[in-house]
Write a protein that binds this DNA or RNA. Structure first.
Lengths: 219, 219
DNA sequence: GCACATTTTGAACGTCGTTCAAGTTCTTTT
DNA sequence: AAAAGAACTTGAACGACGTTCAAAATGTGC
């Protein structure tokens, strides 16, 4: 009847994932998890430091899933020998929109948690886990010719990724209307397309090189 | 000693603003506000439906402030007869970054609230208040020549605004490092500049018109 | 001064995260 | 196999939270 330590921990984690996926960030209750797992409340605090520690693990797993999806997209792109940054980024963005569509509650729960908890009190491995997501886009931009500089590439990666993220999460509503996905995707598509197209006309210093035919700025 | 109804309500609102500005979304407690205002907890529930109703008002005021800042920027731009969308949008974005810099806690508290509460249970006036913010950018894009179509302009407004929002809020950390503002601004500047530059090379259908010299997409 | 309506009060309710002494189970030693 | 020690589990208890509502206090019209 009794399970070993790791199995119980695993079960608690899964139940926590389900609770958050169903009821969001506030849906995770110590007593609820304990009852569902057939253990007492105290045991949860033996397996995890506290509920936030449990949330840390749940969120980490969610990021793992997103990264797995992204890795799949990158694999497909590589198999097709796709080198166009615009097409690659659009494929990645589409995957991200789909991810939020299926894991919406969990994803917003994670974002709510990240905001609620002070960055200083987050463990280093968790912060590193977050930063790792940015490198996915950075890798794509690396393969393109127009973004050779590492600093600029980093700025561009974070700008684009955060931008797509902003569209997806700001537009996301719990009540799922039919037009949400369409409208969100239209915005994402435009942002990615215009951003990538615009990068070709900007030099490393950030000044516009070729906008309307006139040269702009300059000493 | 006793104040009239409106004064008390005003005082509670101000105290609620201060509590949220200091301690964030979770910092607003019924008993805390009651004690600070010199009233009993029950009275709060007479002035507002519940704490979320109070938060609604606080957030609405915060949006008012942002809009006032934006209106000031637009006034300055109009005074200078500025017609360049890029320059106008950069000025607006800079103002937004500054706004989040000074009202960070309150702003993230609002975002946390908006996510936590189901959209369906939000009053119409609150949802309308949110949508109104998008129109600021829409108005700027309207003055430019390349975005005549209302639908495309709406998409572009929301994409850009959400994109900037994503950069600012995703990058915002409670512990304010010196480089946060610089890094955030570098990303915002790049996003706005590249996005606007890119819009010139995209037709209404969203396909790239002039990217690298080759025409792309087709029939 | 009286009757009625309105507002304020704060004790009380249920729920939450978290703790910890006491009870139980596993491990090691003899 | 028994005893001793370590490690884990338990659930009642604590303080804090949002919210309610009968009772008290205040305001209003006559």
């Amino acid at each position: 009847m009794t399970l070993d330590h790791d199995s119980v921990r695993e079960r608690v984690l899964t139940l926590a994932e389900e609770a958050i996926a169903t009821d969001g960030h506030e849906g995770l209750k110590a007593r609820g998890i304990a009852q569902a797992a057939g253990i007492s409340v105290g045991t949860i605090y033996n397996l995890f430091e506290d509920l936030d520690g449990l949330r840390l693990q749940v969120n980490s797993r969610l990021m793992d899933r997103l990264e797995a999806v992204a890795a799949g997209v990158l694999r497909d792109l590589a198999a097709k020998h796709e080198t166009d940054a615009r097409i690659s980024l659009l494929a990645l963005a589409r995957a991200y929109v789909g991810f939020v569509e299926t894991h919406g509650r969990s994803w917003t729960a994670m974002l709510a948690f990240n905001r609620q908890v002070d960055t200083a009190s987050m463990p280093d491995w968790y912060l590193a886990r977050q930063d790792q997501l940015f490198e996915i886009i950075g890798d794509i931009l690396k393969t393109t010719s127009f973004m050779a500089d590492a600093t600029t590439r980093r700025t561009a990666s974070r700008a684009l990724w955060s931008g797509v993220h902003g569209i997806v999460t700001l537009g996301y509503r719990r009540t799922e209307t039919d037009d949400w996905a369409a409208e969100t995707w239209a915005q994402v598509e435009l942002l990615v397309t215009a951003f990538v197209a615009g990068l070709h006309h900007i030099d490393a210093a950030g000044t516009v090189r070729d906008l309307t035919g006139n040269s702009d700025g300059g000493a």
